Computed example of a mutant assay.
Amino acid sequence: MTISTLKDLYVDQLQDIYSADKQSLDATKKLHDKATSSELKSALEAGVKGISQGMEQVKGLIQGHKADPTGEHCKGMEGIVKEVHAHAVNADIADKDVMDASIIAQYQRMTHYGIAGYGTALAFAKRLGLDGDASTLQTCLDNTYDGDRHMTEIATGEVNKEAAA
């Protein structure tokens, strides 16, 4: 697709978010399987649910603009997911608490990428006067921030303390 207007760029960014979410969904499921902390496992389950909901919302926005949700492959998230595999999913970390700390670090990297994507798309939607889209994207952004904050609470409350012991 040739990008000629801000709306073209906006739709391209939505497709990128959809691809990023799809990749992070699979990675989050794998992180869940490696986690040992029950609180962390629960948070990752919530992350899977949240990412899935975000994907559905973004898919609807893309289709509302007569575009294909799978029209873009997010190379940025592809790289982050490779890091997730290297530093958590396939990592040789013997201590379970250190592994949980690494899982949180990797999950938050994916989350921060999502925050950047949703924030940018939200700014574009507002500039384009797409109030309905902006409302949906604000919800996605808020949910992503909430998930990130929850992971920080788990890390600073339980996991990092145990990993340092």
Rank of each mutant, 00 (worst) to 15 (best):
T152D: 05
A46T: 09
M151E: 10
S102W: 00
N143S: 03
D142E: 09
V98H: 05
G79I: 07
K59N: 13
L25N: 11
P69Q: 06
G54N: 15
I51Q: 10
D16V: 01
D142Y: 04
N90Q: 00
T156L: 06
S102T: 01
E56Y: 01
L44D: 07
M55V: 15
G50M: 08
K96T: 15
A116Q: 01
I154T: 03
A125C: 12
E56I: 02
A91I: 05
H73E: 14
H112E: 11
Q53G: 08
E56S: 15
Q13L: 06
Y145C: 02
K30E: 14
T120R: 02
A101S: 13
A123C: 11
M99V: 05
M110I: 02
K7A: 13
Y18T: 08
T111N: 13
T5L: 03
G71Y: 05
D131M: 12
V98I: 14
S37Q: 00
T28I: 07
S37M: 01
E153H: 02
A88E: 12
D92G: 00
K66A: 15
T2S: 10
A121F: 14
V11A: 08
L122N: 11
S52L: 09
D16I: 01
G54M: 04
E45A: 04
K75W: 01
A125N: 13
I3F: 10
R109C: 00
I115V: 14
R149M: 07
M99S: 01
L40M: 01
D95F: 11
V98S: 08
H73F: 14
D133W: 03
A121D: 14
E72H: 08
G132I: 05
E153S: 06
A116P: 03
D8A: 06
D92F: 03
D68N: 15
Q15D: 10
K34N: 02
D92I: 10
A125K: 09
R149P: 00
D26Y: 03
R149Y: 02
D92C: 01
E162H: 11
L61E: 09
L128V: 11
C74V: 10
Q138N: 13
A20D: 07
M99A: 08
Q63V: 06
S52Y: 07
V159R: 02
K49Y: 02
V58E: 12
E153G: 00
A165M: 12
G76S: 12
D21H: 12
L6R: 06
T156G: 02
L122R: 14
L130R: 11
H87N: 12
M151C: 06
G147R: 04
T70Y: 05
T139R: 02
K126R: 15
L122D: 09
G147C: 05
G114A: 11
A67K: 04
K22I: 07
H73L: 14
E39C: 00
E162Q: 14
E78R: 07
C74K: 04
T36A: 00
Q13F: 06
A164T: 12
A164M: 13
L44I: 12
M55S: 15
Q15H: 09
H112I: 09
L61P: 15
E158Y: 01
I80P: 00
D142N: 10
S37W: 06
F124D: 13
D97E: 15
V84H: 06
T144P: 09
D16W: 00
A27W: 01
Q13G: 10
Q23P: 04
